[in-house]
Nucleic acid binder design. Structure first.
Length: 246
DNA sequence: AAATGACTCAACCGCGATTCG
DNA sequence: TCGAATCGCGGTTGAGTCATT
C-alpha cells in the first residue's frame, strides 16, 4: 500500500527499516534541520513526515499505552487553562506527545463532554477561554534578544511557534500596568501555588461555582496572568476532603 | 462466523510564524 | 526590507482493530 505523491515522495505507514534509518540519523545529528533528514537518511520521505514520525513515535522518551488517572486529571486542568494548545500541554505531561494528547482528547474527552458518537465536530467547538502563559517577574532571570523579546521559555519547555512564545517584556509590563486587580490577584495565586505545591484546590467561576479540582504538585510552576477568561478567578482552597477521594 | 459500526492511532494537510539570505 | 525557505502547530482523515449484533 505504498502511496507516492506527485513529487514521488513516499507517504503512508512507515516500515521498520525506515524507522531504523530515521532513528539512526537523529541520534547521529540530533533533532532539527529536518529538511536535511531525507538526504541524510536516503529516505524518500518529506521533512514533515520525518519530523512527525520522530516526534510522535520514535523518540525514546515517549510513554505508550493508556493514560493514567493522574495524566487524565492533569490533562483536563491543563486543557482548561491552555485550550487546544496540545504542544504546550504535552510539554507538561512527560512522555506524552501532542498528537497522543490531541487524539485522546478528541476521542475520549470530547465524547464524555457530550460530543456523542463519531468524530468530534471541531468546527463547532467554541474557542476555549484560556489563560495564556506569560512570564512573571518573580520567575527565573530572563534573556532578551535584539528586539527585546524574551528568549527563555517557561521552565525548559521550548517552542518555536510564536503562539507559544513569551511576550516581550515591554508588553508584559504594559499589560501589567493596565491590568485589573484580578490580574495581580492571579499572580499572587500562582506564586502561592508554587509555594504550596501538593495542596488541593478547586477552580471556581465568577459565581463561585466549582469547575474542577486541582492538585498543586501536578501543575508546573509557570506563571499565568489573567486575560479575562472565565477561569481566571483564582481557585479557592478546598476545605473538605473531596479531592482526596479521587 | 460474518457483517457492520465504533473506536483508536498514525499520518497528512494547510497555515501562520520565524529565520535566513 | 523583503521574499523564500523552513519550522512547528492544530485540524483532519485514512486505515486497522475491536465490539456488538
Amino acid at each position: 500500500m505504498d502511496r507516492v505523491n506527485a513529487l514521488g515522495v513516499r507517504k503512508g505507514a512507515w516500515s521498520k527499516e525506515e524507522d531504523a534509518r530515521l532513528k539512526k540519523c537523529v541520534e547521529q545529528f540530533g533533532e532539527g534541520r529536518w529538511h536535511l533528514v531525507p538526504l541524510r537518511t536516503g529516505l524518500n520521505r518529506c521533512r514533515k513526515s520525518c519530523r512527525l514520525r520522530w516526534l510522535n513515535y520514535l523518540r525514546p522518551d515517549i510513554t505508550r499505552g493508556k493514560f493514567t488517572k493522574d495524566e487524565i486529571d492533569l490533562l483536563i486542568r491543563l486543557h482548561k487553562l491552555l485550550g487546544n494548545r496540545w504542544s504546550l500541554i504535552a510539554g507538561r505531561i512527560p512522555g506524552r506527545t501532542a498528537n497522543d494528547i490531541k487524539n485522546f482528547w478528541n476521542s475520549r474527552m470530547e465524547k464524555k463532554s457530550g460530543g456523542g458518537k463519531g468524530r468530534p465536530n471541531q468546527k463547532n467547538n467554541t474557542k476555549a477561554n484560556i489563560i495564556r502563559p506569560r512570564p512573571l517577574s518573580f520567575s527565573t532571570p530572563t534573556i532578551h534578544d535584539h528586539r527585546g523579546a524574551r528568549l527563555e521559555t517557561d521552565h525548559g519547555h521550548q517552542s518555536n511557534n510564536s503562539k507559544d512564545k513569551l511576550q516581550p517584556s515591554s508588553s508584559i509590563n504594559a499589560s501589567l500596568s493596565s491590568s485589573s486587580k484580578e490580574a495581580n490577584e492571579c499572580i499572587r495565586w500562582w506564586s502561592n501555588l508554587i509555594d504550596t505545591a501538593g495542596e488541593d484546590f478547586a477552580f471556581v467561576d465568577d459565581k463561585g461555582e466549582e469547575k474542577g479540582l486541582c492538585t498543586g504538585s501536578k501543575i508546573n510552576p509557570v506563571g499565568f496572568i489573567d486575560d479575562g477568561s472565565d477561569l481566571s478567578v483564582p481557585p479557592k482552597k478546598l476545605t473538605d476532603d473531596r479531592s482526596r477521594l479521587r
